[in-house]
Design a protein around this nucleic acid. Structure first.
Lengths: 335, 335
DNA sequence: TAATTTAATGTAATCCGTTACATTTTTACG
DNA sequence: CGTAAAAATGTAACGGATTACATTAAATTA
């Protein structure tokens, strides 16, 4: 592999001139410029970006910590990140953490070992040791999607509480009084927030909150399927089921159908996220749409702004959501 | 950030000794070893891996070119890659190429610019210029999932032709004689191979091949939906529909149901890939299961073997498939 | 104990591109 | 034409870890 010195030799110039030809072409006379460019052509020279990154101390790489890439919502977020990263000249390093804090910390070390400039965390965790702050007092991190209110780093999130309340109000408006909720993983702020929104809407409508209508899940199809089976075993069957994400809802629908229930005639089901499959299931799923790609783009832009010192204090960006009413929710059955 | 020199100074040794303490601890006396380790602790020293990579010329990074991360089959493949990459001490750089050869070439440049050691390509493309071969005459690349027979780099693939034939035979065995096929993108070898397998099975059964039963798709839900709508407009409606992937099949099922058809009573539908949703749709989808995670693992292992010189010629690995019969296929209706 | 081998440590070059500073060449203008 | 200013180019240090080779210290053997 040809180095800058090979080019310099062939073009009868110094390495500095070659470097300038590429970095600041107007600081080189036209004749030498063409000579150098020809030499580059001849040698097939490509700058060793590892050397550049080492020298500059900047890698222009961002670590993205994703609980799992096998989640369509995250897939969309990541797509958005890649668009923004490419625009800003950054590369993404994807870390599939499986929600494991050790793996998160392992990936975060890439910042400490100068392999990456910053981290985008899709969970409400801080994988850094305490002393990793930049000169501005910020961590080289942004937190997207799942966010804890107490964090002091830039965040991009949804008003999950308001969104869940909106969906719950939709169900209440359809006459539902007994609305089950399949939650996400226990510790997740997402879960907490959506639960809070659900409770808000119940309270507004003077519907007593019933803890027995809360079911645990983990955002997977399987979890939704199993939770729905449990729901069918409780005494008074709820007339509606709000699932904290679409995968859960689709799994639940499957179990409910297998049990012979009609949706939405016998029971309404609602999801959250509006993944592509939501529009292609039977019945199409009523859900909350989130601007997933824009989450990713915003997260990258915020992080790059932090890294370049464009931001002095951590902004909290709130993205809009939209209630998408399809066919899986309908009027509460009257007995 | 502390450097190796800071550590050396604090421990009153040379930088060489510090380096040896970490690389070859037995070449350092026990007393100095503990002294150095203490100094490392005190300074919080973390080796600058950018410097290491630059010095060694090896990045221990692999570029993965994925047409789209928003595809659940690829998501599983990538998960498998990450497992294997972690085991072998490599990092993955994910390139979402959207099937665009320019973007592929852009990412492949990361190898030429020493940002990555090799490439895993999930399409049957060679993004490299001709002169990128290693000393063994191999490209630093493996080709997984979608593979063209003529390629000379290591490959991991399925016998797509045999798999498609297996599925088609399953449909024929159920009495179907008119089987439509929704293909993938035109240029894809996957599409070609699965079409060939479909034709093989027809020929075996002496069923004439009818070009009018071929429909174009692009492996998305939407494409399946639209193709199925087109199928409903042709004169003699087929009794079975074989889709070249599950997304297509699920999209098609939706369109067929909306048109009032029952599955499988009126029309059978089969997919390919066995994504998680295949088991959670209505009806659950008959499909071909592929060992997606193992595709990824094998691909990474092959590439690392190429890079380390463990492999002199390019192996062609064929992975097993399995016919998964669920509820979306049934006996052909008798008119 | 002297001589020799082995272990431990140190010195300095190296990887390659960037850039501050130095030097040379060209241009501009009196 | 000569000198000052501007433009073009060159020299060499730098970044941080690794490692070949050199040197010193410790262990072994005669």
């Amino acid at each position: 592999m040809a180095t800058i010195r090979d080019v310099a030799e062939l073009a009868h110039v110094s390495v500095a001139t070659v470097s300038r030809t590429l970095q600041q072409p107007d600081r080189v006379s036209p004749k030498t410029r063409v000579r150098v460019l020809e030499a580059i052509d001849h040698t097939g020279y490509k700058p060793n970006l590892m050397a550049v990154k080492f020298r500059s101390g900047k890698t222009h790489s961002l670590v993205v910590l994703v609980p799992t890439v096998a989640n369509l919502f995250f897939a969309r977020v990541i797509s958005g990140m890649q668009v923004a990263a490419a625009q800003r000249g950054y590369t993404l390093l994807l870390g599939n953490t499986l929600g494991n804090p050790d793996i998160e910390a392992e990936y975060a070390k890439m910042v400490q070992t100068s392999q990456a400039d910053g981290v985008i965390q899709l969970r409400a965790h801080n994988p850094f040791p305490a002393d990793m702050r930049t000169t501005d007092g910020l961590l080289p991190m942004v937190n997207a999607c799942e966010v804890r209110a107490t964090t002091d780093c830039p965040t991009v999130t949804l008003d999950n509480r308001a969104a869940a309340a909106t969906m719950t109000r939709h169900l209440i408006a359809l006459g539902h009084r007994s609305i089950a909720l399949i939650k996400g993983p226990h510790a997740s702020p997402l879960t907490q927030d959506r639960l809070a929104g659900y409770q808000d809407a119940l309270r507004e409508a003077n519907i007593p909150f019933d803890e027995n209508l809360l079911f645990n899940g983990d955002f997977t199809l399987q979890a939704g399927y199993e939770a729905a089976q449990r729901i069918l075993t409780i005494g008074q069957r709820p007339t509606a089921l709000f699932c904290e994400n679409d995968e859960t809802a689709i799994g639940a629908v499957q179990a409910l159908k297998e049990a012979g229930l009609r949706i939405p005639e016998d029971i309404s089901v609602a999801g959250f996220d509006d993944i592509a499959f939501a529009g292609f299931c039977d019945p199409p799923l009523t859900t909350i749409a989130q601007p997933a790609e824009e989450f990713g783009q915003t997260a990258v832009n915020l992080l790059v702004d932090v890294l370049t010192g464009n931001i002095k204090k951590a902004p909290k960006v709130i993205m809009p959501f939209e209630l998408i009413v399809r066919k899986s929710t309908g009027p509460a059955p009257t007995y």
